[in-house]
Nucleic acid binder design. Sequence first.
DNA 1: CTTCGGTCCGTACCTAAGTACGGAGTCAAG
DNA 2: CTTGACTCCGTACTTAGGTACGGACCGAAG
Lengths: 135, 135
Amino acid sequence: MKTQPPSLTVGVFAAAAGVNVETIRFYQRKGLLREPGRAYGTIRRYGESDVARVKFVKSAQRLGFSLEEVAGLLAFEDGTRCDEARVAATQKLHDVRAKLDDLRRIEAVLAQLVDRCRARRGAITCPIIAALHAH
Amino acid sequence: MKTQPPSLTVGVFAAAAGVNVETIRFYQRKGLLREPGRAYGTIRRYGESDVARVKFVKSAQRLGFSLEEVAGLLAFEDGTRCDEARVAATQKLHDVRAKLDDLRRIEAVLAQLVDRCRARRGAITCPIIAALHAH
DNA sequence: CTTCGGTCCGTACCTAAGTACGGAGTCAAG
DNA sequence: CTTGACTCCGTACTTAGGTACGGACCGAAG
């Protein structure tokens, strides 16, 4: 596992992570991302792990985690003490599983809709709501 | 299936749906919720189906759907033409499945972390990022 | 050693999704 | 028929998550 030294400028870094430079700065202000020290000069350099981190933030966000929650997830990676991490991770695991259940329900209903629709049964009054109704 | 007539005032309705009154009005402005006509008087009445609808919106939101996307999902229920519905639903189905994949990945990593942590292997440098790294 | 794109930083602005406010109207109970 | 709680409506404010702006500075290329 070669951990190459930080070598990317913000511009390159941001592009690699698929966000814009301002977002990087924003995440730094929020404490989601370190501000690398700037050896030899006043310009900061970033590494691949930073890119991965930002990509992770974006993925988690798409799944409905707020930046604050993402910060919680990232804390595990950042070496919180084992006990705290376990408790927090267990909690998050519950959350995630609840989300999975909900999503699976939606998936089932959508799949069914598409299916019925394909079978051309005239007016399909799709019961998406009904399906979710069961909480 | 008894569809009782609208009989709830906004206040009761909002409480039943677990949101506040202003949110109801907001959803109406956004077209996510009908504004019931007000038979006999100037006060609006809502029914159980409205409650279900709002609850659905809230569920979908928790899963990372924006109100706009939720509106899209609800359009199926509201009887769009079959062809359009099928196309849109198919698209949504892809989205949902992508979300499911991501969530499952996170679930796996979290479960693994909790597990390892329970086994007390000292400092766990949890590779949440690495796991998500594979997109 | 100039030059010109990139960085740095503070501050201002933007959209989504609500929340709050205040005045006017309503309606059921006393 | 008055009161007090609730509704209605427009408008303004708030929070999260960014985006945009503009002046000063840096640093590699010519």
